[in-house]
Design a protein around this nucleic acid. Structure first.
Lengths: 110, 110
DNA sequence: TACTATTGTCTATTTAATTGACAAATCAGA
DNA sequence: TCTGATTTGTCAATTAAATAGACAATAGTA
């Protein structure tokens, strides 16, 4: 059974893939994860979640040109879908609501 | 090895436990998870993450009175720590930055 | 040609999340 | 007072997510 909610790594990868458009592929996503979130993951972890996000319909992918400038297999580029963007916005809004509830309590008690 | 980052469920549980202060215990946390986030979890899942968060130092707990009004074992109340609050704020800020990057790209390409 | 760099795939292992059965405590009604 | 329903917590087993590491594919460079 696959979870219907978005996991923590999944959310970050989606955000970064979206922000990197149209140059989002595993290697640079991993780099951004490290640079911007200080999140250390191995490449294959990024691939694992990219594949899972694609199977959930939150991302789509296509392979780049057959002859890259320098080494490597063809890059697989990912794009966020409308469904993916909507899912991101939804969790964000709900979490922001919780956050404001929390800060409110924090004000009263501490 | 314990992950240094906060998981998706962990984050929600911390936010809710904080917002429910000083009445946060597993059963009501689970109810809020359902009501506010439409997140369906079994009670023991909530307990599992509460225990993990406590062992990470993000929450602390104490047992309530030995003779509750109606049924049940003694309630275990959870409180968010300064460390927990700081961790929440940190991931939130970083994610917000990614989100604004994404919306910016979204504007340019779609 | 051999080496290095870049990217992706696959399999196995570890960690996190979930489930379900059970234990403990108390109230309410027969 | 016994029985059952309620409320809460604990524990063990299973499933899913995340990680690690070996390998394959492709191309530039010495």
């Amino acid at each position: 059974m696959i979870r219907e909610n978005i996991g923590e790594l999944e959310e970050l990868v989606m955000l970064i893939a979206g922000a990197l458009h149209p140059e989002a592929y595993a290697v640079v996503i991993r780099k951004e994860l490290l640079d911007k979130m200080n999140r250390k993951v191995v490449l294959s972890s990024v691939h694992t979640v990219l594949n899972r996000l694609e199977s959930k319909g939150y991302l789509i992918s296509e392979f780049g040109e057959a002859t890259p400038e320098r080494g490597g297999k063809r890059k697989r580029y990912f794009t966020i879908t409308q469904s993916g963007l909507a899912a991101l916005k939804e969790v964000r809004n709900k979490r922001e609501q919780l956050f404001s509830d929390l800060l409110n309590v924090d004000f009263k008690f501490q």
